[in-house]
Structure formats: structure tokens, C-alpha cells
Amino acid sequence: MLSHPDITPEMKQRIDEIIASHKDTPGAVIPVLRMCQDVVGYLPVELIDYISRGLNLPRSDVYGVATFYSLFSLTPRGRHTVRVCLGTACYVKGVKEAMDRIGRTYGIGSGETTDDRRFSLEAVRCLGACGLAPVMMVDQHTYGGIKPDQALEILEKYE
């Protein structure tokens, strides 16, 4: 039913549990997509099809939701997600230079992943930490006051 090189049998079991526990909840598609993405790391199209069958929803609906919200990714993600805040405060404080340097150093643009799946780079809207501008988040950790050189130094620590 669901076969994809990035989805292991254990993952599939988790996915089935998630779908089963939300089957009859109206409006559950967003939480289900989120939880499934947490399991697999991203949402391959085959998985979206599988979810739509499981929730008994048209594929177009589920695909429509998955592509509308920026949280969902239909392509593989890196081991670490680098979120560079492009909110107003960070912008005023020159975050763009840091973003450009990261992009040039690792050869990726916003929304892209390095070939070795080490980093995914994302330009995000205000992280709500304007007091520390410019701000970058690597996975769940927030770094404030980043200059281009520091940003690169921080990233070196993540394998």
C-alpha cells in the first residue's frame, strides 16, 4: 500500500496509528500531516495519497492543504533546519548579509537542502525574538545577534 524508500516499516506503523486515531475527527488533516511529517521528516507525495485514503478525503484536498502551509515540505529535509529570521527588526539589523553568506557557503538558497542532507535553509518570518536581532534558529536553538562570520561558525558545530 505505502511503499517509499524513505519510509521504514516502523514509520508506517506510526503513520497508521496517527491516521486511525484521527479518522473521525473533523478538520484533522492539518494535525495528521504535521505528525506524519514529524515521523518521516517530510511528506512524499505517496504519503499524502496514503493519508487521503486513510482519512477518506479527496487527494486534492489533502494536497491543497499540504502545499498551502509553509510548515509542510514535499521534498526531503536536511538533518538540521536553519531558520534565518527575515522579520523587520532582523532586516533592519542586517540579517540579509548573514543569510547570503550562509547560502553562498553551502550552495543553497532559501527552501533548499544541501546534497548531503546536512542543512535545510529557510528564510522565515519573524520568530518573535526581535530583542536579539538578527536572529537565527538551528533546529530548536535560537541564536541572537548573529553576524555573517558567527553564523558560519555556529553552523560548523552541527554535523
Binding site: L86, G87, T88, A89, Y91, R125, C126, G128, A129, C130
Partner: peptide
């Protein structure tokens, strides 16, 4: 769903 860049009071 505080989304305005530069606003973090709700958070």
C-alpha cells in the same frame, strides 16, 4: 497566530 514581523507581545 501572531504573525506580524516585529510583534511578540502575544507570545
Amino acid at each position: 497566530d501572531e504573525g506580524d514581523p516585529g510583534a511578540f507581545m502575544d507570545r
